[in-house]
Every structure is written in structure tokens, then in C-alpha cells.
Design a protein around this nucleic acid. Sequence first.
DNA 1: CCAGCGACTTGACAAATATCAATCGTATTG
DNA 2: CAATACGATTGATATTTGTCAAGTCGCTGG
Lengths: 232, 232
Amino acid sequence: MPDSDYPDIRRLDLFSDMTPEHFQTLMRGAYVQNFPPQIELITEGEPSDFLHVVLSGSVDLFSAWNGRDTSMATVRPISTFILAATIKNAPYLMSARTLEKSRIVLIPSQDVRAIFDVDGGFARAMVTELAQCYRSVIKSQKDLKLRTSLERLANYLLRQQRHAGDAAAFDLAFEKRRLASILGMTPENLSRAFKGLQPYGVTVDGTRISIGDQADLERFAKPNSLIDDFST
Amino acid sequence: MPDSDYPDIRRLDLFSDMTPEHFQTLMRGAYVQNFPPQIELITEGEPSDFLHVVLSGSVDLFSAWNGRDTSMATVRPISTFILAATIKNAPYLMSARTLEKSRIVLIPSQDVRAIFDVDGGFARAMVTELAQCYRSVIKSQKDLKLRTSLERLANYLLRQQRHAGDAAAFDLAFEKRRLASILGMTPENLSRAFKGLQPYGVTVDGTRISIGDQADLERFAKPNSLIDDFST
DNA sequence: CCAGCGACTTGACAAATATCAATCGTATTG
DNA sequence: CAATACGATTGATATTTGTCAAGTCGCTGG
């Protein structure tokens, strides 16, 4: 691995508290690879050989069953994925594929587990990371079970808007078919859902979203920090 | 707390690897309480003051939004809940209420975080516990997003059957209204779903479920270890 | 330039799910 | 024992969501 990547990884919360020696050990066994778009990095059901770290690009975590499939989450730099499978030495529950050209670190799971056993700082960082992941999925689960698809879309747009610095207009982070899958609906329904939000001042032009009256949309969406706030 | 409860708690994976001193410290600040049924133990949004351990009885984790509510999970002895909120010192994402008369240990979150900082064994046990919780929610999420309500019910019954030692008949673990909520449907729909499984040999008499032909039901349900196997 | 591809949209329809109201059955209680 | 309360069920209906089949639009590669 090029040494230039070290600092970026070291700076991750997950790796910043471990001893330099242990970090070195991890990095010695690791390697970095550049992947083109649409490459399947891991397949659900396979043993978790590597902990992955996305340095650049983005990765889609998805799952399939009985001919259907669904996007579960998107991983953006710089963060890790499939930490839980790695540490439990259990099969992946989700598949992963690159969405764009991506630079990814692969750290042998075996090494991660070994260092985890001897480095308290690493173990503690892992707790924080896993707790965060757990709470994110719980929020997503609440979103799915408590809201209609229209409400999910409205709240998603408000979250994206906040992420864009409360701008009145912003671009969708990815294509609509996958947004639909993430929100748990079909692409056709997403199209209709966008129309359904027109009365609340939402206009769509291709990938560009404009929110005419944020307060109006919020009155409908009823965003809630226990579902929509990703920082806590 | 009565000393008789110590061994039960100590035997939990979460607490078995920590030093005796740290365990003592945790137990000194903890207390045990008996709650009647239907008592709300915690409310979502509140600060996480205590890590909870269910010694006996059972607890429903649920969440509400905009007048709707849904059951997220059931906690049975002996295990903990809201570990993630405790460790992140963040508000509860779910509310909890006793389903029956329950005996519950309350351990001040502050103590848990303090010991977590100094006891590597505890931190490591926490990682395992959180990874398990995370994977459980992911499975549940896949169940929700990839399956129809009929398929969810069929697979739920197969899981329960396995839990009952592959018996041809078994009793539902809780009342149907809450089962419906857990499976993400209305009670009315659950009733119809049971009827919908009759062609596959499922018969219902009150709380008693009989599975006439397990292979037949499995052909319909298509159980998958990456969704339905809770041990991995 | 333009043919072709793929994502998106739209409409018509079908299926799944929720809602509302009424009823049934059982367990509890005065 | 009767009255009642509550969960479960059922039927009718409405809403939501998915499916299928066009058709549009924009982009890209020859």
C-alpha cells in the first residue's frame, strides 16, 4: 500500500486510538485496490475475509432473496464496512458493489480480530463504531415501519437538504432507481411520490430537487431526530 | 441487589470477561427491581441513564411516530437492552415496556461507560454483543424489505418451530396483535395471512400453531440462513 | 449526425395492505 | 351468573403499492 494512504486511514475514528505498532501490523497485511464502477466486491453468504475501507468513490450495500433485491445502504469515504461480519467471523449478510471508480483498502479479517484481542483502544473504537451502525439501522427500520413511502421520501429530501447546507435546491446523491430501492419502493412509485410532493412545494428537474417552502414540507414530513438525525 | 442475582448476570457474555473488581463496581451501583406487566420502563428520546438487564419476564421494545407505533423486538432473559444508547451516551431510540411481570437490573450508564474505558475484556465483550445486535437488525431489515407479509409470517412460523425443537405444533410466543406489529402488518392482515398459509398445511387454533407439512411450508417460505438464522 | 441504449416517466391495471365496522369468543369481574 | 371488556376474526371497502407495457428523454458510440 502507498504510504500516502496511511494518514487517511489512521485518522479514522476506528484506527486513531490504537497503538502505532498495532496499526503498523494491520497496514502491513493490508492492500489497496482501485476498482472500476459496478464491480461486486463481496457477495452475501461468503466468509468475511477482509475488512473494507472506502478511501474514495462509493459502495452500495445490497441484498437479494428469491429473485428480489434491495439496497440497504451506501458507504462513502472515508469509512469501513462489514465490520460486524469481520469481528464475528461470520458470513457477510450483504453484498457490496462499487457505484463509481473507487479506491478501497482491504485488511485481512484475521489480522483485525487478532489486533482486536490485544488492543483495548481498538476494541473501544470498535464499540463506538458498531453502536453507531446499530443505531443507524434502527433508525432506518423505524423509517420503514412507521412511515409511508411518501413520508419516507419527504424526510429523505429534508435530510439531503440539510446535508447540502439547507440550500433551496440540491442534486440527488445517486440515481433514482437506487434511491427508490433504498427507500423501499419501486422506481415507478418514486416518480409518483415526487409528484405527490408537488403540493408541498417540491419540484424535480432531472437530478435537481428544489424545495419551495421548507416549513410546508416539514409540516407534512414531520421529521424526527430519533429517525432522521444521523449524528446521534 | 440480592447477591443471588450476581451469578446470573456474571454469566452473561457481556460481563463474564471483565475483572472481578470491575464487575463488583458495576454491581455496587446497580439495583434490581420487579415490575408488573405493561409498565413503561424507558421512553424513546430520553437520555440513557441505565443499562437494563432482563433477569426474568420479557420486555417489548417499540417505537412511535406521528400517532403510529410499532414493535421492534422482544427482549427475553437473560439479556441486556439499549447497550448502544448507553455507550454512546445518546438518547434512547426505542421505548421499552414489560410484557409480563419482570425482574430487571438497572446499571447506571455512567458506570458502564467508566468501566468500558478501563476494562479491555468488557470492551471486547461489548463488541461481540453489538455486532450480534447489528446483524440481527440487518436480518430483520432484509426480512421487511425483501418479503411480503405472507412470506414473513411463513418464515416466522418456521423459526418458531425450530425454536420449539421442530415440533409439529407449538404455541405462539405472544399475542397476535403484537406479532402483527413485529411482522410489520395490521392484526386484521395477520388473521388473513394465517388463512393464506392454510394451503401450505398451517392450521391455527387460538394460540396453537400446527404445521402439517414442514417441507411444503418451506417450499413456499424459502427460509434463508442470512435472514432467518439468528445464531450467526 | 443519428441509432441505440438505458434511465426515467406515464397510464392502465392488478395485487397487497390498511381501514372501518360488525361480530364472535373468551376471560374477567362484579 | 350476567355483564363487560378485549382480542381475534370477518366482510366490505379504500388506499397504497407493485406490475406491465408503452413512450419520452438524454446520452453515447459508431
